[in-house]
Amino acid sequence: MIKIQLVDDEPNILKALKRLLKAQGWEVDAYDNVDDALGGLLAHDYAVIVSDYLMPAVDGVTYLQFAKQRRPDAMRLVLTAHGDRQSVIKAINQAEVYRYLTKPWNDYEIVAAIQSAVELHQLVRENHRLLQTVATQKAMLQAREQELQRLEAEHPGITQVLRDTEGSILVGDDS
């Protein structure tokens, strides 16, 4: 199941978002402080993290920077009531957030943004998986190649098949 992490110091925001996002069939974990949210990152593999910007002690962008290190594949979104230019720039340049959303929000906007973040997350995951497959197959091919080279060194010509003009296979080393 797709897991979403919400971080906001305002519990009523978390409840409203849960109402909305659970109805989409996502599993939603809500955190009202950054410490617990960081702990949550260790325990769960989130597809998307939605964080508030202004929070006591640590701001949302700093939190998302941590999150980026712990869970680089999780898509990062900011949802804030504090839409000044400084924080947008910080969010983009430092935490590489995928979307910067503002409160109050339209439900369909949030859902659409998370939906597309989820899709991108799945693409990234799929990409990783495919790269992994390519890597293992490449390793297998390499091992086979090495074995052939070893055989060739031990018994020169053994890896080649010689045929006469009619196409019959020639056995022996009278070539």
Partner: peptide, 24 residues
Amino acid sequence: AAGVAHEINNPIGYVYSNLQSLDR
């Protein structure tokens, strides 16, 4: 005003979203 906007946008944010949930 900037600070107050922040403080008001939070409650407006969840009340507005709740109304949309109420609709559903």
